[in-house]
């Protein structure tokens, strides 16, 4: 799962979706049988996409996720970009591209802060199927 997708997924339990705690899912509790594993995967760079998606990224949530994954280097506020094709912006767009699209979470677990349900990620596919008692 890309870090970009991790910035959009929320708990799929119906009772949680009404509370603000269902997003973001936390990576702070990992289990021994599914240890956290990150990987770098090359993706074609498209500055337009990063420019389009940037306003919709929840930056505080991204900061939390990055910190839980062991990255404290991110700036505190959303970088502002006016022109995606200007050469001075290319480096920052490339950095965002590496962070959002090329960082893959291969395995690990995500926790909902509200209901404490753990979503496991295996082979970079998160499992959002709920056990019977949580489906409403």
């Amino acid at each position: 799962m890309k870090l970009l997708t991790a910035n959009f997924v929320q708990c799929s339990v119906k009772a949680c979706s009404a509370t603000p705690k269902c997003f973001p899912l936390h990576f702070d509790q990992q289990t021994a049988d599914v240890p956290l594993e990150l990987a770098h995967e090359d993706v074609d760079f498209s500055p337009e996409f990063i420019y389009n998606i940037l306003p919709r990224i929840d930056w505080p949530a991204l900061l939390i996720t990055a910190r839980e994954l062991g990255n404290n280097m991110l700036p505190e506020t959303t970088p502002e970009i006016e022109n995606p094709n200007a050469p001075e912006n290319e480096q920052i767009l490339r950095d965002l591209h590496t962070l959002l699209l090329e960082t893959q979470i291969i395995q690990g677990s995500m926790r909902c802060e509200n209901c404490n349900h753990i979503y496991f990620i295996r082979d970079s596919i998160p499992n959002f199927l709920l056990p019977g008692h949580l489906v409403q």
Partner: peptide
């Protein structure tokens, strides 16, 4: 990106994704 989920149980994404 791939996700294992049941669409009838809801789309697990926050608003405006």
């Amino acid at each position: 990106d791939l996700l294992l989920a049941d669409m009838g149980a809801g789309i697990p994404f926050r608003a405006g994704s």
